[in-house]
Design a protein around this nucleic acid. Structure first.
Lengths: 154, 154
DNA sequence: ATAATCCGCACCAGTTCGGTCCCCTATCGG
DNA sequence: CCGATAGGGGACCGAACTGGTGCGGATTAT
């Protein structure tokens, strides 16, 4: 579990499809065909992505969609936030107040750290990388480097 | 969004409560009182946690629960997996096959990386740390260190 | 035996999610 | 100026999941 919504998964698929042809202005139908996602679903996703500012739309006869910025500057975190709202792994992490045990809750600051780590994990991958056949980042010698994120106090 | 189930949140709360008294054998009612979580819910959680091997139970009069291992060896990832099943951020990441666009899906290997990063983020925090009033790990000078996890190819 | 306690399962209401449809608005071409 | 094409904003529905409750049964100390 702990999974993203299926729509979000489709969303990244559509976005990578878009990323493969940065110059073109593809309409919803065409995107559906290329991404193998049902057309109505693609249409719905694109509306949300436009609202989120990740893609821009052109209306009218030869209208369609294209990425709002370069594929290297759009991260998976951006897509997720656009489709599911702000990333917050716990309920109390986002709205702050309202928790009944607010005072006695020692775990909260720790959850925020985990939250931040997850967010960074999603921010570390760009659309350009997703579109490439295989992930090929800096490649460091160490195999399983611990998360230094937790070292930084917020 | 991208949040863990509310039950999982409660679960960690119960676990940290348990971690504060490693020697004692606390029953469900007592745990409910200490963790400020509704008693029936606590009972349900504990059953799952026992099945997951994170806590051990003693039946009969004066029965109760205690951690199966030291609080430093139990991570948030353990609790999440016990309560929500294996951590897999995308649907295709866990069951492997069945995806209709399996062949044309370039993003899959990238999702697995993200998945791994998230898993590490959750594994990096132990119950002992959650129980402590404030997170206090190694503390490094840098503020926002990038995730090196993505450097390691799987 | 009795009481306390855990165990396993079934059950229910509320919400969320995926998916579809419809009508409106904007733009281009004739 | 008109009509075809395409996006925009909703409403809407069925299915699945989630949180939460309850009950009978098993286990153990007194």
């Amino acid at each position: 579990m702990l999974k993203i919504a299926k729509l979000t998964d489709y969303g990244t698929l559509v976005m990578t499809t878009l990323a493969l042809e940065p110059a073109a202005c593809l309409n919803a139908q065409e995107l559906a065909a290329r991404s193998h996602v049902a057309a109505p679903t693609v249409a719905k996703l694109l509306k949300l992505l436009v609202k989120g500012g990740l893609v821009v739309s052109t209306r009218g006869t030869h209208g369609g969609y294209r990425l709002a910025r370069g594929a290297e500057t759009i991260t998976v975190a951006d897509v997720v936030s656009a489709l599911e709202g702000p990333i917050a792994i716990t309920a109390c992490a986002q709205h702050g107040g309202g928790c009944t045990i607010e005072g006695s809750c020692t775990s909260r600051s720790n959850w925020r750290l985990i939250d931040e780590a997850v967010r960074q994990a999603l921010s570390a991958v760009t659309l350009a990388q997703m579109a490439a056949p295989r992930a090929k980042t800096t490649r460091m010698p160490g195999k399983s480097v611990p998360l230094h994120v937790f070292a930084a106090r917020e």
